[in-house]
């Protein structure tokens, strides 16, 4: 017994070393083969929260790349939405297996130059006709519509934004389905107006304004803004509807350009309407 105690005293340090080393190695080899236990990993609460802070700092390094990926994914998702498709109404026979045809495609773009303080504000996008942009295509962001393509060059295009005087996009007040025309007064980049709303109808404040999709530039139901105030128009039975844009155009960066695959079809059909002779 005395010898044993003496032995432990003598090799005390070495025994501690061996014990700790065995512990460390046993953790190492167990986790190497069966990574199952939850303590002592970065998934635990303390180191997890520190890593979250670290990620909060470092995630901005890859921000632009991540945004591009998200934009691609959004396009893919939006192209699956029902309002990108048109129902085939042919009852006698089916051309495809599917019920829906793709009507709208979306092209990602970045706003590289913009003004919001002028009377007519135009935004410049980083893509042009090489990427398939044409005059008259709609532009929107994930929060709301942006404008209509006004001019294109080989690699750039100019958007006539909703912050121009005669943008005249046909919009719809959401719950009641009233149609109006979007206007801008050239002063406040956060507010526009909707004209042509008859004042015999009650409109709730903060009801949604969305695109009507009548001219084929925008799909139906894209967000435009919310109604903030109703002003009576003197001498006319109309409301002057003050609307707050859902998108903040002062910090706009990522947008999508809408390509309507059935635009030509709609245009030729509508061109066949006889012109009114009295006008």
């Amino acid at each position: 017994m005395r010898n044993l105690i003496a032995f432990f005293r003598r090799f005390r340090v070495f025994l501690v070393f061996v014990a700790l080393q065995i512990f460390a190695l046993s953790i190492y080899f167990t986790f190497l083969n069966f990574p199952r236990a939850q303590y002592l990993t970065s998934a635990s609460a303390v180191s997890g929260s520190i890593l979250t802070v670290r990620n909060d700092i470092t995630k901005h390094f890859n921000l632009s790349k991540n945004n591009d990926q998200l934009q691609q994914e959004n396009i893919w998702l939006r192209q699956q939405l029902p309002n990108s498709f048109q129902r085939l109404r042919n009852r006698t026979y089916e051309i495809d297996d599917t019920l829906f045809h793709q009507q709208y495609l979306y092209i990602p773009a970045t706003v590289i130059n913009s003004t919001v303080t002028k009377m007519n504000n135009y935004f410049t996008l980083n893509i042009g006709y090489r990427q398939g942009i044409k005059r008259g295509m709609g532009v929107f962001s994930n929060k709301g519509i942006v404008g209509i393509i006004h001019n294109t060059s080989e690699h750039f295009s100019v958007v006539k934004s909703v912050l121009t005087e005669n943008i005249n996009i046909d919009v719809m007040i959401q719950p009641i389905g009233l149609f109006g025309i979007l206007k801008w007064d050239g002063k406040d980049a956060r507010r526009g107006s909707v004209t042509g709303i008859s004042n015999d109808l009650k409109i709730k404040k903060w009801s949604k304004v969305v695109t009507r999709g009548g001219s084929g530039i925008f799909p139906r139901g894209l967000m435009v803004g919310h109604i903030e105030k109703l002003n009576p128009v003197e001498g006319k039975p109309l409301w002057d509807v003050v609307m707050r844009y859902s998108e903040d155009y002062r910090s706009l960066q990522r947008v999508y350009v809408i390509k309507n695959l059935m635009q030509a079809e709609q245009d030729t059909l509508e061109a066949a309407i006889p012109v009114d002779k009295e006008e």
Partner: peptide, 18 residues
């Protein structure tokens, strides 16, 4: 152990530091 816990290396740093 502290370093291992954060870097997900399990006993690796512990063993070599010991």
């Amino acid at each position: 152990v502290l370093i291992d816990a954060v870097s997900n290396t399990y006993g690796l740093h512990t063993s070599s530091l010991l």
